[in-house]
């Protein structure tokens, strides 16, 4: 228990810095799939990473902060977009999905805890970052761009292969980060008395 008391300031700084990471990933040029409504970006990798590394609360919050930054006019969305205008566009479903996906990925990842398991990490990233993200994206396109379910699904399917690759990359990166920076994931075994005896 006495190990690294999780201070609220440290959490606050992590949330802020991760919002910055997601923003910085948006500066990487996007590959645009024509005929779809959203470009393929490194940014959704940032969404997955926030959840897989920071966990549900901090990860979800980092994406909320990121969206507020976008809303107040920083051009951080992939492709240099920003400002309130993007929230009026057809990718709104994906945007709302960012914090939700980070939260879900974080919840699944932290439920298993330390040490990070690659296979489970990939499952968590696929459920949160591919399935839920695209379902919300499709709903957004249906509402905002008046597309039918079929048309919106087709538009979203274009991104699924890219997203699946990102889910694997994210798990590999998250494993490396958790190995190099332990203490974020909760211990899998509740009774950590042996640890305390050693320390």
């Amino acid at each position: 228990m006495s190990r690294q008391t999780a201070s609220s300031s440290r959490d606050l700084a992590m949330v802020a810095i991760f919002a910055g990471i997601v923003g910085a990933l948006g500066l990487i040029p996007a590959v645009t799939a024509f005929g779809g409504a959203v470009p393929i970006t490194a940014q959704s990798l940032g969404v997955m990473l926030a959840g897989a590394i920071l966990g549900p609360r901090r990860g979800g919050l980092a994406l909320v902060v990121f969206l507020v930054l976008v809303a107040i006019g920083l051009p951080l969305l992939a492709g240099g977009r920003g400002g309130l205008g993007v929230f009026a566009g057809p990718s709104i479903g994906y945007l709302i999905g960012f914090p939700i996906c980070a939260f879900v990925i974080g919840a699944l990842t932290y439920a298993v805890g330390a040490p990070y398991r690659l296979s489970w990490g990939i499952v968590a990233n696929v459920v949160g970052g591919v399935v839920i993200m695209n379902v919300l994206g499709v709903v957004g396109m249906m509402l905002r761009a008046d597309l039918s379910l079929d048309a919106a699904t087709t538009a979203a399917l274009v991104f699924v292969p890219g997203d699946a690759i990102k889910a694997v990359i994210c798990a590999l990166v998250a494993r490396g980060v958790h190995a190099a920076y332990p203490g974020l994931l909760p211990e899998r075994r509740r009774r950590s008395e042996r640890h305390d005896a050693h320390a």
Partner: peptide, 15 residues
Amino acid sequence: GLMLNLAIRGVPLMV
């Protein structure tokens, strides 16, 4: 407010 200002500073920091 503090968090937002830190995050704004966070982007160039990450770059």
